[in-house]
Simulated scan of single mutants.
Amino acid sequence: MVIGSLIDAGFSQKKLNEELTKLSLDNYETDSKKVLRSAITGTKFNVTIKEDSKNDEHHKRRTLKDVSEIINKSSLSKSVKSDSIRIFENLANAEAKVHDTLPEDVHFHEVGAIDSIVDIVGAVIAFHDLKIENIYFSPIRTGTGFVKCHHGQFPIPAPATVELLKGHHVIGTNIQHELTTPTGAAILTTLGVNVEKYPDISLLQIGYGAGNHEIAEVPNLLRVMIGETTTVGGQDEVWMVETNIDDMPGEHFGYLLEKMLDAGALDGYITPVQMKKSRPGILISIIVDDVHLSKVEKIMFEQSTTFGIRKYKASRKKLDRKLVDVETEFGTIKVKIGMLNGSIKNITPEHEDCRKIADINALPLKLVYNAAINAAQSINDRNI
Rank of each mutant, 00 (worst) to 15 (best):
A92M: 02
G281P: 04
I384A: 08
K295C: 01
L164G: 11
Q274T: 12
F127H: 02
E110N: 03
C149E: 09
I347Y: 05
D119I: 03
T41K: 12
G234M: 08
G227T: 07
E19I: 02
A265V: 01
G233Y: 12
S378Y: 10
K295Y: 10
S294I: 08
G281R: 09
L221P: 00
V118S: 07
S116T: 09
I3Y: 12
E214V: 04
K131C: 07
H169I: 13
M300Y: 02
L367R: 03
Y255Q: 06
F253R: 05
T305D: 01
G10L: 00
G342R: 11
T348A: 12
F146T: 09
L164S: 10
K44E: 15
T332K: 15
I3N: 10
S285K: 04
G4R: 01
A314K: 13
K313V: 10
L188T: 04
R61C: 13
G233S: 15
I360N: 11
K78Q: 13
N341T: 10
L91Q: 15
L365C: 06
L102Q: 15
N361H: 13
N90Y: 01
A96Y: 03
L16V: 07
I71Y: 11
G167V: 00
A158W: 02
D52L: 09
S79K: 14
Y312N: 04
E29M: 08
E89L: 06
V162L: 15
T173W: 03
I309H: 05
D381M: 06
A375S: 12
D83I: 10
H150L: 03
T328V: 08
N380D: 07
V124A: 06
V124T: 04
E178A: 02
G172W: 08
S77Q: 04
C149I: 03
G342D: 07
S32W: 04
K81A: 13
G308P: 00
P157H: 04
E110G: 00
T48M: 08
I117K: 06
K33A: 11
A263Q: 07
T30S: 09
G308W: 01
P155V: 13
T328Y: 07
Q13Y: 04
H59Y: 14
P349C: 14
L363I: 11
P219N: 03
L76Y: 01
T48K: 13
G254S: 10
G209T: 02
D66N: 12
G211T: 07
H128N: 14
T101Y: 00
L266D: 04
L23G: 07
Q176T: 00
T63N: 03
D320L: 09
R223S: 01
G211L: 03
D246C: 01
A94Q: 10
M300A: 03
T173N: 10
S38G: 06
V241E: 07
K366G: 04
L283S: 09
G268Y: 04
R355M: 14
K54T: 12
I215H: 06
S38N: 14
E237S: 15
G4Y: 02
